[in-house]
Design a protein around this nucleic acid. Structure first.
Lengths: 179, 179
DNA sequence: AGTCTATATTCACCTTTATGAATATGCAAC
DNA sequence: GTTGCATATTCATAAAGGTGAATATAGACT
């Protein structure tokens, strides 16, 4: 289970509410560890129950109340212990590739359209990552140092999205030539 | 659930036993849909129970008996129906990036070593994919056409592994410069 | 007043995945 | 002869993930 450790790492860098975390996930972590908001809230509850997080209810003006979570000493230890264990290899789940794999049974036009649609989505994601990356590059100290390592992770996301787009262009061309 | 459809697609291209499928997964599909062998055997049982696969017991000499699975007409229809539904977006789970994200709490030397270890693993995977890719390129007709689309999927795997290696080299250099 | 959007969180159910353990055949090596 | 490896398959259980539904505050727009 690594979601809990991703959450601990994020809150260790900067505390926040579940809602904050969901937004932060979207901006970078979701690339290497996507999680629906329900799962994030669920893990926050579990982490608090385990004593790895504390929460403080914060009353806001113009907005509903929120619960701000912060990592406890136990939480930091848990994270450190996890960091010492070897990480498992990357896992990718890409249903579109199953479709292409089985493409002989599919409608070619529909397949091309869907690849194009996915390509557009990836292009948008890439743009978003690049914006965040630029923002992180332009930070002043000490924030720049604080976000240095998260920034490095984002760079892999950018490279992979670029690969995806490159590949999509090639396969679209190849498939169009065949038709 | 896409594993069942990956299996249907693979068996539609060429029938085989669970053991055969496990090996074929390793060679290409595992890149975009990894599954432990137990899960593949379990899905085969479920697919047969649903009438999407037939199995024939084959007695072998010098080896244990095996069950060879083949896709039924119902299985082909199931796969075709799935192909018409829009595919979900790619999901990546990369625990190593969580470690890098949280790297301020980690031992720098151990982190560098672990990145290096992962890099070696990815390099090996890349080599394996390239070998399979070359094999697919060198096929004669009609096999070449039969495996054309699976070959396209492998190409994304190769690109992503290359991106990963490129990124690993950059981050290793950056982190070593800092130390 | 009614609808829409953003903020903010929770619960319940079901599916999928992860992992360890177990069993069996037959060849080769020591 | 038993240790190890490749082949071949099954089962059980626990953890993690996916998805729909629900609830609430409050500003903005019609």
């Amino acid at each position: 289970m690594s979601l809990r450790h991703a959450i601990l790492a994020m809150l260790d860098i900067e505390k926040g509410s579940g809602y904050d975390l969901v937004k932060r996930f979207d901006q970078s972590v979701s690339y290497f560890w996507a999680a629906p908001y329900q799962q994030i809230y669920r893990e926050l509850q579990k982490l608090e129950a385990s004593g790895f997080l504390n929460s403080v209810a914060v009353v806001q003006q113009g907005k509903p109340d929120k619960k701000v979570y912060d990592v406890t000493e136990g939480g930091v230890n848990e994270l450190k212990a996890w960091l010492e264990k070897p990480a498992k290899a990357m896992k990718i789940k890409e249903p579109l590739l199953i479709k292409i794999y089985a493409g002989d049974l599919a409608d070619k036009g529909a397949l091309l359209e869907e690849i194009q649609q996915h390509k557009n989505d990836h292009a948008e994601t890439l743009l978003q990552y690049k914006e965040v990356s630029q923002l992180l590059s332009s930070l002043e100290e000490p924030l720049r140092t604080k976000y240095f390592l998260p920034h490095q992770t984002l760079k892999l996301g950018i490279k992979i999205e670029e690969s995806w787009l490159e590949w999509a262009e090639e396969i679209l061309e190849t498939l169009q030539d065949m038709a």
